[in-house]
Amino acid sequence: MHQWNTLTEKEAFYTLVEDSAEKPQIIFKDSTTCGISAHAKYKLQSGFEQIAGKAAFHYLDLQAFRPISNLIAQELKVTHQSPQIIVLKDKKVVYTTSHHAIDPGAIARHL
């Protein structure tokens, strides 16, 4: 999706945390071989207009970049899940959910 920033480096993670002081940041952690994750990604793509422009959206292929996923869990003090949504505002996690609970409307309510 053209509005998703691919998260592949730890420096980019630290930058998005800092950027959350100015604009909400969303991280979608995707397990590319998981059917539930594929469904969550489909729901996000189908309802993306509900969050477009309200936050910066970051995509993490956690199988290809598992160290980044581990860093996110450690630094943000969130339990690793897959698929997972994490919303940051003012450098803090304000919402996180996973699996079938991933819903653009619910995400939008936390922006």
Rank of each mutant, 00 (worst) to 15 (best):
63 Q>K: 07
41 K>F: 13
102 I>N: 03
56 A>E: 13
19 D>N: 05
61 D>T: 03
29 K>W: 06
101 A>I: 08
73 A>I: 05
90 D>A: 09
37 S>Y: 02
69 S>W: 09
27 I>Q: 09
1 M>P: 15
108 A>I: 13
39 H>Q: 15
93 V>D: 05
56 A>I: 03
26 I>A: 11
83 P>H: 05
67 P>M: 02
49 E>P: 01
103 D>E: 07
37 S>T: 10
47 G>V: 01
58 H>S: 04
11 E>W: 03
34 C>V: 04
46 S>K: 13
8 T>V: 08
48 F>Y: 09
44 L>H: 02
43 K>C: 12
94 V>E: 00
16 L>S: 03
64 A>M: 11
44 L>Q: 03
64 A>F: 05
107 I>F: 07
111 L>G: 05
103 D>A: 00
16 L>N: 04
47 G>E: 05
48 F>N: 14
85 I>F: 03
19 D>E: 15
94 V>K: 02
30 D>Y: 08
51 I>R: 03
67 P>V: 01
106 A>Y: 12
27 I>R: 12
83 P>A: 00
34 C>D: 01
4 W>N: 03
31 S>I: 12
27 I>Y: 04
106 A>G: 11
58 H>G: 04
16 L>P: 05
82 S>V: 02
42 Y>V: 08
62 L>E: 01
17 V>E: 04
2 H>V: 14
8 T>M: 10
81 Q>R: 15
71 L>I: 12
57 F>Y: 06
79 T>K: 12
80 H>W: 04
110 H>N: 09
46 S>Y: 07
